[in-house]
Design a binder for these strands. Sequence first.
DNA 1: TTCTCGATTGTCT
DNA 2: GACAATCGAGAAA
Length: 201
Amino acid sequence: MAKLPYSFYQEEDVNQLAIGLLGKQLFTLVDGELTGGTIVETEAYKGIIDKASHAYGGRFTNRTKVMYEAGGLSYVYLCYGIHHLFNVVTAGANTPHAVLIRGVEPVTGLKVMLRRRNMKAMKPNLTAGPGALSKALAIDKALNGKDLWGEEIWIEDSGIRYKPEEIAAVPRVGVGYADDHAILPWRYYVKGNKFVSRPNK
DNA sequence: TTCTCGATTGTCT
DNA sequence: GACAATCGAGAAA
């Protein structure tokens, strides 16, 4: 298996890349323990025009600056003081697009993930949901801004290719009714996969 | 410096 | 189904 190259992340169409990441393998090597899984759910955050994005309106701060880097970096941040959320920075420099990884299917290091999650048996919610998968893979702020072809966290091409009819594209909710982007489906997941955080919505 | 609230999840009713 | 947990970024002063 090969790590995805720098060029993979330079895609300017963040929605295309969100789809392209489905079926790829996300790995982390933390404390000498290797864990990883297949990405089955993503959500695109379209930089300055996405009201939900931290970079909305061109906001540039200490936290969001990593999104303005050229694609291929990780963007990790803490939500609700408890959950770490993992994003893939995409597109060229000065375009703060990112893809939130919302769900993975466990493949490697299952026992380690169970321990980190304080669970005894495999259940879909082990890695379903952005906060849950981050904990299972030991992703926290220490991994913010890392290259995604490095030695601590990386994404490989597993060779899995989903057909268009196997991927569900769901419009976001709660965006302004007058906004053209409200009708665009920015959340993608593999149909029928148990490790998708929210089957509907 | 202070105050508010979020790209969520787990637990209790 | 409802709600509490928990902390740092961002905005206001």
